[in-house]
Amino acid sequence: MYIKINNNHIELIKSANPYLIFATIFVFIIGLYYSLFQSPPDYIQGDSMRIMYIHVPSAWFALMTYSILAGSCVLWFITRNPLFNVVARSIAQVGMVFTLMSLITGSIWGKPTWGVWWVWDARLTSMLILFFLYIAYIFLWQAISNKELASKISAALAIIGFINIPIIKFSVDWWNTLHQPASISKLSAPSIDESMLIPLFIMTIACFLFLVTVSLIRFRLVLIENKMLRTSN
């Protein structure tokens, strides 16, 4: 199946843009109302657990975006359809922002819960490494002057990074059991009450809408960039 992007598709994306922005803001406001006012404070953690409603969706989408990024790079190598390259390049920076947000909010959540800003646990460390993988992908593309080559090279790097993430997760897990077994038991997630699932669900949808909106804006941006590169050559 060879999908080709033509002007009709771009017009469709363009016309959908204001609705998407409106929907994102609307769902975020509902999510904020539910997460700050409607949901009860946690039995153990009190009100500090409200940070979860933004931390967990951003961590999910950080991982999901990298999976889409690596998956579309693989598909690009298999099918040679340039659409996948454009998708990978438009989604990468959104993923970087979500990764950074999950790191920052997680760190702020960690201070009242664990008493420290940072714990050298497998999940946190692999998230930090993921952030640097995003940076490597984005800036390697910018560093190579031949853009056609740059896309191929950075796609190869994204796939290698995707192989690297589980290895790092495993090795840091192993390293943790060696050095500080106590800190992991603190991190085990308690079962979530139903009243907390509703705001979490709404915030997840809101973050997903944000991801789609900004990726589509970046999609148009990358297409124009590609066209300008082609005319300048």
Binding site: S48, S58, P112
Partner: peptide, 18 residues
């Protein structure tokens, strides 16, 4: 926010600002 005001509001603020 039950004594956690600075943590909750700063994280929400940073998140939406960025």
């Amino acid at each position: 926010m039950g004594g956690y005001a600075i943590f909750v509001w700063s994280s929400y603020g940073i998140f939406f600002f960025s």
